[in-house]
Design a protein around this nucleic acid. Structure first.
Lengths: 228, 228
DNA sequence: AGCAATAAGATCGTATACGATTTCAAATAC
DNA sequence: GTATTTGAAATCGTATACGATCTTATTGCT
């Protein structure tokens, strides 16, 4: 019958709501109501939540319950740093296997990104294209562990919903240029380390831009307050 | 009462048995017997197993059950590569905060490692000291995400029980020397990137030594066969 | 003998039930 | 008025029960 188990359904639902921002950080995940909504018992829901806990998307306290993980102000920094590290590596490791056709596809995406720079800038859309661009370059990474870490990093960024470019749209222009440079490095078969460090610097550049912005605006956001 | 929940107990037990090698890769984890042994119902055991699944220590198939994750021949390669990446980064990020006292402690550990090189070589013991040495250098890493990845990497290596040095004892001597070089880099406050790449190369060196060994010995181990 | 259908056993998946723990507010004491 | 106690409500933790699914051995057919 149902190709997927109920705990799987529950996992997907909660996960999608966290990803979409419907469940904001701090939101309490109470078993019974969720189970009722999904017309199932609490057992599968409980399992789903524990799984999300293992993925650090929710925090859990014994006999108290779960809530969507709170985001500390340093979280963005750490996540971006980690993503810079693993994405850089994945891009470097994948580079030797990148085909001319893939370069072409990536360049096409980057062209679309460049187009979005004129007129009203849509950070959400730009970020989506950004993922598409980088995906072409790192998906060929032969090390599945590193690739998995890259995916987790992007997911985490998505949850932080810090779309980066919504804070520093100016960075988008630089970003597009750096993409082209990265493509040229790969085309001319630079060493993996060179490509890795370029990809890392590219992401670190975005991080620095955001940090400079928040610094300037004294945007101390401490903890993101919880919302019932 | 019990400071830890039953599912926590179950998790620890199974985890320790996997770590210790009592549950070898492929071993089937059947709920009922484990629950009986721990004098609890299957529910907490089930939760523990799902948690281990999320950590990729066990694989799980719907309506079939769980087994300790099988190890493919490339697994060692990928794990070491990933560990080289994250440990290198952690070491580089921690380096600026390393104190003279910590350097001293690390050097003391390395001296003990050097001593073990004379006489009968004990790979297990050497690896334990190796972890102790590197721990001093990376635990100060300010990025908890990266630090967590380092810990996971070491754990995974432990499960692979591939103690590296048991295959290539010759590498141990080089390793001790590279440790000293690494300490000197940190002492003279080399740049984080320089230290990162040195730490990475150090681990990659061990990996290469093992690969060369297995290549030479045509040690095609395909999958590690399951053991009931 | 070889293959397919079938039945039996093993094991998982989930519902229900209830005791245990925490939280919070109201009542009481000082 | 503040602090402490008490008790009820909310919520979790786990046991038990049973249906669902997969595996394997058995039977029967060709």
């Amino acid at each position: 019958m149902g190709a997927e188990s109920k705990s799987e359904q529950a996992y997907r639902l909660i996960r999608s709501r966290i990803d979409s921002g419907q469940y904001v950080p701090g939101y309490r995940l109470v078993l019974a109501p969720i189970a009722a909504e999904l017309k199932m018992s609490v057992v599968p829901v409980r399992e789903a939540i524990r799984r999300l806990e293992a993925e650090q998307l929710v925090t859990f306290e014994r006999n108290v319950g779960a809530q969507v993980a709170l985001i500390k102000e340093t979280e963005y920094l750490h996540t971006m740093q980690t993503l810079a590290l693993v994405e850089g590596s994945a891009t470097g490791l994948a580079a030797p296997d990148i085909t001319a056709d893939q370069i072409k596809r990536a360049r096409a995406v980057n062209d679309r990104m460049r187009e979005t720079l004129t007129g009203a800038f849509d950070p959400q859309h730009f970020t989506a294209l950004n993922l598409e661009f980088h995906s072409v370059l790192f998906e060929a990474c032969p090390n599945p562990h590193i690739l998995d870490l890259v995916h987790r990093g992007w997911n985490r960024m998505n949850v932080l919903r810090n779309s980066s470019f919504s804070f520093v749209p100016a960075r988008a222009t630089e970003s597009v240029d750096e993409h082209e440079q990265l493509l040229q490095l790969i085309e001319r078969r630079a060493t993996p380390l060179e490509i890795e460090l370029a990809a890392r610097a590219h992401r670190t550049g975005t991080l620095d831009a955001v940090l400079a912005y928040t610094e300037e605006h004294h945007h101390h956001q401490h903890h993101m307050e919880e919302t019932a």
